[in-house]
Amino acid sequence: MNVELARTLPARVLFGPQRPVDTGAGAPPRFTVLLLLAALAVLVQATFGHALSVRGAHISFLTVLVVWTGLRCGPTTGGWLGLLGGALEDALGGGGAQVLAMTIVGFLSGLLSSRFFAESLPAVIASVAGGTIVRNAITYAVLEIAYGDRGSYHRIAHATAWEVLLNCAFAVVVVLALRWWSDRRPAS
């Protein structure tokens, strides 16, 4: 039994259960809950963003949440959550880039939901990294096109590398915490 557990442990840590029905995870979270989490993420970022930055890059809770939502709930929910969360960010000074970027990130993550599962660590890490890069690329494009901000490429490129690391690290923590929470719940 222990040998079997040790043999399957790396795979279980990396990929988690193979299907949500296997874990008894139940229905995906409600959209209102996700929306509240998005609002909270934006609030924390807007309040403590400067304290959570590394070399000019800010951790983006919203990106992780939107990517995870896309993976977990599909493109429609991911896209809508990205749109509303991005609009919140733009309303607090995002300048119009975040609503587009987060919508696309949420939707694209949702497209992956039919291929990967949200509790697979590699899938989440890859999706968060990709989401962060896509978000920053769209941000750069909007800054270039709409504002003519020619000097932003190096700054955004440098920040993107660190943001990928920060967001992926946070995503790992979130996935492991969710997995632990799911395992703690008594099976219904």
């Binding site: 749109l83 991005g86 609009a87 733009d90 309303a91 995002g94 300048g95 119009g96 880039a97 609503v99 587009l100 919508t103 696309i104 909007v142």
Partner: peptide, 8 residues
């Protein structure tokens, strides 16, 4: 999203 972005 584009509408919101344009407004912003």
């Amino acid at each position: 999203a584009a509408g919101v972005a344009v407004i912003e």
